[in-house]
Amino acid sequence: MFGRKSPADSTVVGLIAASLRRDIAFGTLTPGSRLKIEELRARYSGSAHSLREALSLLTAEGLVEALAQKGFRVASATEADLKDITRLRREVETIGIGWSLEHGDVEWEGHVVAARHKLSRIEDRLEEAPLEFALDWEAANKAFHKALIAASGSPRLIGFHDRLYDQSSRFRLAALREGRTDFGASRTAHDRILEAVLRRDREAAVASLTSHITGGLGRS
């Protein structure tokens, strides 16, 4: 009556945003391409209003750019973009893991261990069929890195990290598709980070995480 969204409306917008986010990350929607509402309706269904809401959500996340009076387009994905995203992600994530080590309890440690275990299982499959398990790997990878900062006590830091990680997703998946992902190095880095967390070695955890993020320029 007063313009509030119904739960169904919110669900539709969320589903459309998730599909767009996936297709941007996987390169189906290429950087700089125009996002025309009618074309998107044919691909994703939903109303024009729901699509605009989803695009506005992705604009806030930095995956889509709003053009003055001209609709939307997929955000750029240049090397300069990658370096900027990586630099910010390194700062945010290393602060987050430090705070988590300061405040996290045994339950948090268990959450990190579980996230690493799930990622490890996906990594086993990924090497055999990279394209088939790419999106599963990306989801498990993100879950592990989110777990590392989950006990930071800062919802804003976690939210900012979420957006940065999603913005870097396109670069990781592009590297995977093009055969540029070093699976062994990624596994070793994740294991070292976990080991440092379980030892409660803040210096080692921050150093390992920094090396992991910057060594692959955000592609892991």
Rank of each mutant, 00 (worst) to 15 (best):
R180K: 15
K142N: 04
A205K: 01
A140T: 05
A140E: 00
A60P: 03
L57F: 08
E93Q: 03
T28W: 01
A75V: 05
A80Y: 00
K83D: 15
D182L: 12
A204K: 13
V112E: 00
L176G: 15
L35R: 08
L51K: 04
P31A: 04
K146G: 01
E127M: 05
E127L: 11
D191Q: 13
V74S: 02
T214M: 11
L20G: 03
I37G: 00
L157A: 10
R180V: 10
I24W: 02
R187S: 14
A150R: 02
V206C: 07
D201E: 14
K118Q: 11
N141S: 10
L51S: 11
E53G: 06
A60R: 14
L131R: 13
D81Y: 05
D136I: 06
I37F: 07
W108D: 00
L176Q: 14
P31D: 04
L40D: 07
V64I: 09
A151Q: 02
I85F: 15
S211A: 15
T94I: 01
A80G: 00
L58P: 06
I122L: 09
A151S: 02
L176Y: 15
P155V: 08
I158V: 07
R121V: 07
L217G: 01
A77Q: 08
P31C: 01
K83H: 14
P155Y: 10
D162A: 04
R73S: 04
S120T: 12
D23M: 03
K36V: 11
P31Q: 04
E128K: 13
S169Y: 08
V206F: 11
